[in-house]
Design a protein around this nucleic acid. Structure first.
Lengths: 338, 338
DNA sequence: TTGAAAGCGCTAACAA
DNA sequence: TTGTTAGCGCTTTCAA
C-alpha cells in the first residue's frame, strides 16, 4: 500500500533525489540520457508524484473550491459539470461543497477552503447578504461570485444580464400580441430578482404597458412555492393574457396549478420562464424561456478566477453575459379583437 | 496575503510551536491556562490551520474522490449532493470529477486521485469494463463503486437490487390488470440493465406472462434515444397494454413520442419507469416509477468507504438496497373484458 | 550535469 | 507541562 517516492526512484537509479525531481519536472539542467533512464524507472516502479507534498513547497494546490447552494438543483449541476471540465482543462481540480443556502455554513465552508489552501474559490452565494458575511475572507483568497449580481460591490462576479433578460422577455410577449403581461414571483431580498423586476418594469414603460405583479413572499423560489402562489392567483379574476415567471421553477409550479384549474397553456394563457433549466426542455413541458448560458458562465467563471490567481492583481471584474430567448411552445400569439 | 502559521502564534505566545500544536489538537498534555491563552491568540491573529501540511504528516488528506460520468445527469447530481453532506458530516471533503463515460479519462482521473492522496474514492463507473480497466489501481486506494452491480467481482459496491426492482414493477402492473407488458429499452453491455431484464423475465415467468422486448441498440440511455426507439415502436402494431421502461429517461422519450403519435398515457397505454429521477415528479410528467433510493445509496457509499479506510482491512462489501415503487399517474388499471 | 541541504507547516516521539 | 528535534515528499537554491 505504501507508495513509491522520489527517493525510492533515486536509490534505484543511483542518483540523488534532486536529479529525479529535475527529470520529472522537465528541467533542462539534466542530460537526456539520465532523464530517459529515470523516467523509464518511474514507469516500471509505478511512481505517482505526491501532489500534496508538491503543493506544500509550491504554495499552490491546483485545487479550486466550488461552493454551491446545492448541486441537486439542475441549474447548478449543469454549472458544476462545465466548471469541472473547464478547470480540468486548465490543470485544476474542484473541491465541491453545498451551503444549503445557509450563511453560517457558507462561512464555515469558506474557512475550510482556506485551510485546504485551495488556489481560489467560485461561489454561488446563499443570498445577497453573502457578500457582507464573507467579506473578511475575500482578501485572503481569490474569489469569484457566480449567478448573483452584486452590483456595485468591489468583487469579481459573473452573471447574466438579468435586467436585459426580463426586457427581452416582455418584448417577445409583446410581439406575440400580448398587452397584459403579469410578472409572477417577484421576490425581495435577491438582487437577481430585483433586476429582473426592474427590466420588466422598464419594458412595460417603454411599450406603454401596465405592469402587474404577483409577488412571492416565500423565502425562496421553488416549484412548490410557485404552485402555491399560482393557486392563489388562479382563484382571482384573470386580467392578463400572459404570465412572465421570474424563474423556470416558478413556471413549473404554475403549470401544475394551471392543470388542476383547467387553464390551458398556451391556449388560455401564455407562459414564459427565466433560466432555461434542464427540465424546461422536457417533453410535455416545453417551456419557452429566457436562457442563462450556463456553459459560458462556467467558462468565464473559471477563466476570471485563474486570471485573478495568476495576476496577483488585487482588482476585480464584473462579467455580464447576455441572455437569449429559447422558443418552445408555452407561448402563443394572441388574436386580439380590437 | 501570507497566512499566519503555527510558528507565528508560538512566537506571539512565547512558547514552542509544538505547544501550539498541542493546544490546537486538544491534547491533554497541556495546562488549561496556556491552552486558553493560545486559542485566544489564534482567534485574534486569525489563524487557520494548514490542512495540506497536516495531511502530509498524518498521511491522510480527509479528501474523498468522487468520479461520476457526469454531474449534469439529475440522478448523479442528487447522489453527489447527498454524498457531500454525508462526507462532510464525517469530516471529509469531496473532490469531484466527471469521466464523461470515457474509460481513458476515467483511468486518468483515478491516477490523479492517487496523486492527490485522497483517502478513498467513490466511482460511478463509465461502464461494465471499468472494473477491469481500473483494476491496477484498486489495490492502491480504497474504492467503492456506486450504481452498477459488479456481481461476482471482489470489490466493494453499493447499488440497488435491479433484479428485484424490475420484478416489483411487473407485479405492480399485473395487479393493475395488465397482462401484456412490454419491456422497453433492454440494453446489452450494462450489468444493471441485464439484471433488470432478468427480473422482468422472471416475473413474467412466475405470473405466466409472455415477455416482450423492445431492445435498445443505442450505446447509452437517454431521452433522445428513448424517443427514437419509441417512434419505431409506435409505427408497429400494438400488442401490449403497458410499457415498462428500463429507465426514466427512456420513459421520458416515450412520452414525447406518444404525444406526437396521439397515444394517451395512461388511457391508451400505461407507462412505468425505473430510477425516479427528479424530472419524473414534475407536473405534467408524473411518471410512476421504481425508485433508486439515492440518499440511502449516498450514505451507504460514504459509510462503506470510510469503513474500508479505517479498518485497513483488505476485504470488500456488496451493499444491495431495495427499490420501492413510487406511484404517480402514468399507470392506470386495465378493465379487461375477458 | 549532478549532489547536498534547506525549508514548506505540521505532528509526534523523546527529553527535560 | 513544555521544548527539541526529526521527518512527511517535494522543489530549489547553492556548491561541486
Amino acid at each position: 500500500m505504501k507508495n513509491v517516492t522520489i527517493k525510492d526512484i533515486a536509490k534505484a537509479a543511483n542518483v540523488s533525489y534532486s536529479t529525479v525531481s529535475r527529470a520529472l519536472s522537465g528541467s533542462p539542467e539534466i542530460s537526456d540520457e539520465t532523464r530517459k533512464r529515470i523516467l523509464q524507472l518511474c514507469k516500471e516502479m509505478n511512481y505517482t508524484a505526491n501532489t500534496v507534498a508538491r503543493a506544500m513547497v509550491m504554495k499552490s494546490t491546483k485545487l479550486l473550491g466550488l461552493i454551491l447552494t446545492g448541486v441537486n438543483n439542475p441549474f447548478m449541476s449543469e454549472l458544476a459539470y462545465h466548471i469541472d471540465r473547464q478547470a480540468r482543462a486548465r490543470g485544476y481540480n474542484i473541491v465541491l461543497c453545498n451551503s444549503s443556502r445557509n450563511l453560517d455554513q457558507e462561512r464555515e465552508l469558506f474557512e475550510l477552503m482556506i485551510g485546504r489552501q485551495v488556489d481560489g474559490v467560485m461561489i454561488f452565494p446563499a443570498g445577497p447578504e453573502s457578500y457582507e458575511s464573507l467579506r473578511p475572507y475575500l482578501s485572503h483568497i481569490p474569489t469569484v461570485f457566480i449567478g448573483e449580481n452584486l452590483r456595485e460591490v468591489p468583487e469579481s462576479y459573473v452573471s447574466v444580464d438579468n435586467y436585459r433578460g426580463a426586457y427581452i422577455g416582455v418584448e417577445y410577449l409583446y410581439d406575440l400580441g400580448h398587452r397584459d403581461i403579469l410578472y409572477f414571483g417577484r421576490r425581495r431580498g435577491s438582487t437577481t430578482h430585483q433586476l429582473r423586476a426592474e427590466g420588466y418594469a422598464a419594458a412595460c414603460k417603454d411599450l406603454d404597458l401596465t405592469p402587474r405583479y404577483c409577488n412571492n413572499a416565500f423565502p425562496a423560489t421553488s416549484i412548490k412555492y410557485g404552485y402555491q402562489l399560482a393557486k392563489q392567483l388562479f382563484a382571482q379574476e384573470k386580467n392578463y393574457t400572459a404570465i412572465f415567471a421570474a424563474t423556470d421553477t416558478n413556471a413549473l409550479g404554475i403549470m401544475q396549478a394551471a392543470e388542476e384549474t383547467g387553464l390551458r397553456i398556451p391556449e388560455d394563457v401564455s407562459l414564459l420562464g427565466f433560466d432555461n433549466i434542464r427540465d424546461s426542455g422536457l417533453p410535455r413541458i416545453n417551456l419557452t424561456t429566457v436562457e442563462q448560458p450556463k456553459k459560458m458562465m462556467a467558462s468565464v467563471a473559471v477563466d476570471s478566477l485563474l486570471d485573478k490567481i495568476q495576476s496577483e492583481l488585487a482588482g476585480y471584474s464584473h462579467r455580464i453575459l447576455l441572455p437569449t430567448l429559447v422558443e418552445r411552445s408555452s407561448c402563443a400569439p394572441l388574436n386580439r379583437e380590437d
